[in-house]
Write a protein that binds this DNA or RNA. Structure first.
Lengths: 157, 157
DNA sequence: TATTGTTATACTCTATAACTATA
DNA sequence: TATAGTTATAGAGTATAACAATA
């Protein structure tokens, strides 16, 4: 080891490895149902939160707005979601699932639960809870970091 | 909520969100040093494990072999790594960092540590250890799942 | 015959910026 | 002027399969 970075205990590496594995597994599932992984993320978020504006959907799916716009194009072509302008602010676009979108979601959700169960094999309920709580704290810390970086750039620019 | 999938407690979602955030942050860092995130992953793995064959490097970076082949093309053009054929099996190609690659790694590692510290703000040492241990178990469970799926496909095909 | 790695190809995602419409 | 979303575009990653060389 030339420089001191112990990958086996380096959080971003461990997070990426686990995330890549679970994403790869679910990419296969999504394909079985004729969609991509980002499309499944959109369906899952809409299922949980109901109709959302594009910006909010982008934040909740961690998909960039411009990328999401194209993902939604594809989903509209497949008849899974519908976009409508307005709802107060006429600049905004609200996205909601169609009946077909909800049907597909209902089919995939049990598989999603199964994969989570497999991932958590050997974890007891308390451990699983603790893991999820820590992932949430991690995300919030990084969220704050993002804000700080933006503030620095604003001050510098 | 139409179907029962509580995203706020759904592990793959939480993992993806945290992973996406940390990847976005580190994509910016990598760019500051003139490389991409996958290139940084390659440098970090080579730094930790020493010279590796392409296959092993692909496994340890969670980058597909064919994708990695192109990433390495770019890194060779930048003079960060060198490939050499052989070392026993003449089909294999061994990848190692150059002096410039090691210099760059040495510059990025402190930043990597900083980002880990920020991500773990508010975690005590025991919590951080527990989180990392659980991420490793998670990965191993999914690894086994991957093997099982491959076995099923083999049996089916 | 199977495996290692590269190459071809086509597709998806990503990121920046320019643009339209509205606020 | 600023914001919401789309579109243009170029690039980077991904996946499958075909391929060359070696085992």
């Amino acid at each position: 080891m030339t420089v001191d970075l112990d990958l086996d205990r380096y959080l971003p590496y461990l997070l990426n490895r686990a995330g890549a594995r679970i994403a790869a597994a679910f990419t296969g599932v999504a394909r079985d149902y004729g969609i991509t992984l980002p499309m499944w993320r959109v369906l899952a978020v809409l299922n949980h939160h109901g109709a959302l504006r594009v910006g909010g959907l982008a934040r909740l799916t961690t998909i960039d707005v411009s990328t999401l716009s194209r993902v939604l194009d594809g989903m509209e072509r497949k008849g899974l979601v519908a976009r409508r302008r307005g709802g107060g602010d006429q600049r905004s676009v609200t996205v909601e699932t169609t009946g077909a979108g909800r049907d597909l979601t209902a089919k995939v959700v049990p598989v999603a639960h199964h994969y989570e169960d497999v991932a958590l094999t050997g974890f007891d309920a308390a451990e699983a809870r603790a893991l999820k709580a820590m992932l949430i704290r991690l995300f919030e810390n990084l969220d704050r970091l993002d804000d700080d970086l933006r503030a620095e750039q604003r001050d510098a620019g």
